[in-house]
Design a protein around this nucleic acid. Structure first.
Length: 561
RNA sequence: GCGCCCAUAGCUCAACCGGAUAGAGCAACGGCCUUCUAAGCCGUAGGUUGCAGGUUCGAGUCCUGCUGGGCGUGCCA
């Protein structure tokens, strides 16, 4: 429908150009929007207002000329000029309803597109260090990154999902010391407890498992405990594997898969950090001062220069980050999206500056970042402070257990990433029976139910008959649904381009609301076969789009509730 | 101090490249189950889009300045 209208407008535009009403060389992109208010028809175009100036004509007068130049089409039932010069199109029912046929034909592919043209894209997300369980903030990153990956896959990109973590630095030493202390029977309250050690109970669990000689299997490693309380290397290795396994279990329960686990230690062991440093020095953007090696990041927009190699000879964290991103670039990812918490936003300028300083032709704005704002957790009317060391903690697993996977995913992805988010656990649990996600799933279950009823009632859906009678779907509530269905593919494309999965959540709420309204007012299983089958065709199409949309968010589409 | 993000109904949030009368949910109030799932629907009420300017046919959206909140500003990650 929209394509048809765009075609008509393009023709009208070229007619006016050839008549000299609009300058021949004036390029304009025709914008056609679904209307918000149905008094304005189905689609509205602001072309006349945009072209008023170059045409030196009043917008409404120009709109008149445009309409006069529109070729006749059976798809359009009415065209009006409204307001300051909008051209409003009213779609003929039968033409609008053709979307149903397209949805049914395309099935689960409806909404997908190939504008990505097979581009190789990497989404790096979560990237939690193995020093503790995943918390709510990681959960937000996990869903957002996962849904961005799903959106990119649905739009023709080849997506690699990657998890990066530090398995060797000072934090890991701290982890080992904490576990060692627990193995020796120390508690965080003990005077001999390591300074800044991790105090959470999970440390004791690791110590216990180590002493028992347990074997842990994570997605990227498998380690059997030596049980030797003095072997610090063995303890370190075991603790990392143990926490990796815990994180993997959480992510699996959350339905968030990864393709690649990338170890920070590999950047050192494979000489990539050293090579990066060498290259940076050759590039001429480094200098030595105060016994340290610095990178002149101010050459690339940073507000001060940064230390690369500390006086003690260790590198600061951003050096391996630069080495890591150079590695990503060399792996051929033309687009890399790093999903992180906004508390890490200072790294953005540094990593990009480092990559520029390498002088290997990486574009200035590369990589792309999606930064989600902080999540605060409320429980019992009070904010729960997230502190790994103090061990007061709301884990992602707690949330999934208490609130449910789908509801947790939905809560964390339904909002724009740059708004701070308060996750009230009590509220989420209390509402678990009256939750926005159930609203969507219930719509799907209702549709399944009515389609099933057609079978059990002995009047199975006759698709050919239904499609032949789509012109009968004249109820305004049915037309709303048709327009909503037609908008899905561009909605998916827009959400993918802007990396904003919350748009899909929003869309589904609107689709479900329009369905519930329609379902309540318009009976599907009427006696008259033409009408019944037309409505069943609509039901099938709505169910399909609901299912496809839920899939993009990683949510179940239950057949009954 | 400087940098980034945010401010929309009582609360939690939407609003597509700047479009027409700013929309949902929760909470409040009043209705709808002898008819396809009431986890639903219909209706009422609720707003100077933080404040002040500017840009233009048109601003919640863009620009400037303020106020308030979050994060960052390590030779921590």
């Amino acid at each position: 429908m929209k394509e048809t209208l765009l075609e008509l407008l393009t023709q009208a535009l070229s007619t006016l150009k050839s008549e000299g009403v609009i300058p021949q060389d004036h390029e304009v992109e025709i914008k056609l929007d679904a209307t918000r208010d149905k008094a304005h028809g189905d689609y509205a175009c602001n072309l006349a207002m945009i072209l008023a100036k170059p045409a030196r004509m009043a917008p409404r007068q120009l709109a008149d000329r445009l309409i006069a130049a529109l070729p006749d089409s059976p798809a359009v039932s009415k065209v009006e000029i409204a307001g300051p010069g909008f051209i409003n199109f009213f779609a003929a029912t039968a033409a609008a309803a053709q979307i149903i046929e397209r949805v049914i034909e395309s099935g689960e592919r409806f909404g997908r597109s190939d504008f990505g043209q097979g581009e190789s894209v990497q989404v790096e997300f979560v990237s939690a260090n193995p020093t503790g369980p995943l918390h709510v903030g990681h959960g937000r990153g996990a869903v957002v990154g996962d849904c961005i990956a799903r959106l990119l896959e649905a739009t023709g990109h080849r997506v690699t999902r990657e998890f990066y973590y530090n398995d060797a630095g000072a934090q890991i030493t701290n982890l080992e010391r904490s576990v060692s202390a627990r193995i020796k029977g120390l508690e965080p309250s003990d005077p001999a407890w390591p300074e800044d050690g991790y105090r959470g109970d999970y440390i004791a669990d690791i110590a216990h498992a180590y002493r028992q000689g347990e074997t842990v299997v994570a997605d990227d490693r498998r380690v059997t405990a030596k049980a030797d309380p003095e072997d610090r290397e063995a303890i370190r290795e075991f603790a990392v594997a143990y926490l990796r396994r815990e994180q993997d279990l959480d992510l699996k329960a959350f339905d968030v898969p990864f393709d690649v686990y990338f170890l920070e230690s590999s950047l050192y062991s494979e000489g990539k950090v050293a090579a990066t440093v060498e290259r940076l020095i050759e590039g001429g953007h480094t200098f030595e001062a105060d016994g340290a090696l610095w990178l002149r990041t101010t050459d690339f927009g940073d507000d001060k220069d940064r230390v690369m190699r500390k006086r003690d000879g260790d590198y600061t964290y951003f050096v391996p980050d630069v080495a890591y991103h150079l590695d990503k670039w060399r792996r051929g990812f033309t687009t890399v999206i790093d999903e992180q918490g906004a508390d890490h936003h200072s790294t953005v300028t540094r990593v990009r500056a480092g990559l520029q300083a390498l002088g290997v032709g990486i574009p200035a704005g590369w990589p792309e970042y999606v930064l989600h704002q902080m999540v605060t957790v409320m429980r019992g009317g009070e904010e729960v402070k997230l502190s790994k060391r103090a061990g007061s903690y709301v884990t992602l697993r707690d949330l999934i257990d208490e609130v449910g996977r789908d509801a947790t995913r939905y809560f964390l992805v339904a909002r724009r990433v740059d708004s701070q988010l308060t996750f009230d656990i009590d509220l989420a649990r209390a509402q678990s029976n009256d939750n926005p996600v159930y609203y969507l799933q219930y719509a799907h279950a209702r549709l399944c139910s009515v389609l099933k009823r057609a079978e059990t009632q002995g009047t199975p859906f006759d698709q050919a008959l239904g499609l032949a009678n789509l012109g009968l779907l004249e109820d305004p509530r049915e037309k709303d649904l048709l327009n909503r269905l037609a908008a899905f593919p561009e909605q998916v494309a827009r959400a993918a381009k802007s990396r904003e999965p919350h748009q899909i959540a929003q869309y589904l709420q609107e689709l479900a609301a329009e369905f519930h309204t329609c379902y309540n007012a318009v009976k599907v299983m009427v006696d008259e076969p033409d009408m019944r089958n037309a409505r069943l065709a609509l039901a099938l199409a709505v169910r399909q789009v609901l299912r496809n949309g839920l899939g993009l968010l990683g949510l179940d589409a239950p057949e009954e509730m």
